[in-house]
Design a protein around this nucleic acid. Structure first.
Lengths: 328, 328
DNA sequence: TCAAAGTGTGAAAACGATTTCATATCATTT
DNA sequence: AAATGATATGAAATCGTTTTCACACTTTGA
């Protein structure tokens, strides 16, 4: 393992000059520059990044907090972020919080101990009040999910609009009895429900609390929801699910019970994941342009760490789009 | 940002003593230990990890090279690795090579510049001969994929067995005309094909080169393969696909052409991904216990970086299992 | 012609931790 | 009572960079 000292010795110059060459500082003559370069190449020298960081403060690493990478939405998001980061010479540290407040908090130590330059929160477990103290150690931004009290940049979608256009679509199809599934009470869910309620209220419909389901996440949860619906005396004729997985579960279970989709029950998903176009019928869904969100969030973060942008309370909203297929 | 000096000052002790407390060294009296702890808590002190690393050499970070995180196999693998790493206080650096030799090589600089303690290669683009020189900077192991010339630990599955039992299953179902899809010529593919050939040869069948397809990766590739099969005068009656995505594509396209699966064409997948049990018919597949691979690979890597295990030429083989469903 | 500004270089001080070495105290053993 | 070993602490060296400061040499400008 060679150090800058070895290079300096070999080139017959000082460490300072070698360092200047490495960092492209002005005021180094061409011939010395070449000599240093030659010495570095011959030794196969690579600067020790811990030492660099100790001086620089910059780590060229960004931590990304997500709940679970196996969720296709998150893997696509992370994929886009990694690509963007790599293009700018940054590495991405993957932090699966597994929906644990404690784990999420642990990851903030990365910022405090200067192991990363910034944190992108693509899932949120703790309230802003507990996260806020960490902002003095480096920039933190939200991506997709967010805490409304936070005073930092939020790259996200207009989920109110998402809930609205999805529900509107079902109304336009003539449905008056529209059920609604959501996950936990995250910002995304809350806003999406606002959009749903706005659409039905506008249509002069009183939302039926029996048709509002909470904590629905997986394919199996979707299956269970169908069975609950099938058992109702007064069942909804359409269902807004908030995820393609849940939609898939509902549809599959409906079919095994002999229901026809969309005739007996119309179902709309969310995310436009691969599964949405594979199922029979293909699932009507709402496209989130996941890669755009990831790329934009990373872009914003890099601008912030490079001092080109302020991390103040700003919403960066990205578009969403309804994709009509056969399940509605 | 407080340093160890501030803590020492506040506690009225030396930096050395503070450092000893941080690192749980023996020979520190209980009262001083408490005093240091108190000072650290009051200041909210967290050691600067760059400085620690500069002395220690250890970074507590492992790089994981994969081709693309959006591939569900990889996201599950990475998920398991991250979980294992986090439990031992290690972070995981995600490196998407995007099937690029150059990108893969760039990531090895992480090892050279001491940014990670080791590298797990879960995809391989470069030959071992070009990777080998990096081994002097830190441990490199293979996971799932591998270069047969490599002299390091390989955590993987017996893919020969995988190809064999899958093909055997089709033979047992009475098929004599069995097609075979593979991706690129990776170690996994090569071994799996060996198993396929072993099974058919044992059954006294001459493999038909027209039914051997290469570079088949995606759902759409699967669709295309079906169309090629449908156009054949002498078409196979069964197909070993090597991935659930490809299997799904083949099956969907077969159905749109009015073929019955498995009656007109039996299809077997690989990986047991969620989609395998969602499609109609559900896909017969081979389970790779992906999480086990990831966990084991990380476990082995941590043992190596902690000096508890030698990184010599060893194969750690994990079990595989046929899951019979309705597509065969 | 001489000061000011621009260019090029190296010695040494930082960055923030860990570790070595030296030393001091205390408890045991002979 | 003296020698030994275990425990406890601090000063200073160290890790490998970057940066400041000081100095020297050139060029420019009035």
């Amino acid at each position: 393992m060679y150090t800058i000292k070895d290079v300096a010795l070999k080139a017959g110059l000082s460490q300072a000059t070698v360092s200047r060459v490495i960092n492209n500082h002005p005021y180094v003559s061409e011939d010395k520059k070449r000599a240093v370069q030659k010495a570095m190449d011959e030794l196969g020298f690579v600067p020790n990044s811990s030492a660099q960081r100790l001086r620089n403060i910059k780590t060229k690493k960004i931590a990304v907090l997500i709940s679970r990478i196996v969720n296709p939405f998150f893997s696509q998001l992370v994929d886009a972020m990694e690509q963007k980061a790599a293009r700018h010479g940054y590495q991405l540290i993957l932090c699966n919080t597994r929906i644990s407040r404690e784990k999420e908090l642990e990851y903030f130590q990365l910022l405090k101990s200067k192991q990363v330059d910034g944190i992108i929160m693509a899932s949120v477990e703790n309230d802003w009040s507990v996260i806020e103290p960490y902002t003095k150690y480096g920039p933190i931004i939200y991506c997709n999910e967010y805490d409304p009290n936070a005073s930092v940049t939020r790259v996200r979608l207009d989920q109110v609009e998402g809930g609205y256009i999805g529900t509107k679509h079902l109304l336009d199809k003539g449905h008056r009895k529209i059920g609604y599934c959501q996950g936990n009470d995250s910002s995304v869910s809350v806003n999406r429900r606002k959009g749903y309620l706005k659409a039905v209220t506008e249509a002069g419909i009183e939302p039926n609390p029996d048709w509002m389901f909470k904590n629905i996440f997986t394919i199996d949860d979707g299956r269970a929801i169908f069975r609950r619906i099938a058992d109702m005396n007064d069942a909804p004729t359409a269902l807004f699910t908030g995820s393609d997985e849940v939609a898939a579960g509902v549809i599959k279970e409906a079919q095994t019970h002999g229901w026809k989709v969309p005739d007996d029950l119309a179902v709309i998903g969310f995310d436009d994941q691969p599964i949405a176009s594979l199922l029979d019928p293909q699932i009507t869904t709402i496209n989130q342009f996941t890669s755009d969100i990831g790329e934009t969030a990373m872009k914003v973060m890099l601008e912030i760490v490079q001092g080109k942008r302020k991390n103040n309370s700003t919403d960066i909203l990205l578009p969403i789009q309804l994709i009509e297929r056969q399940s509605t």
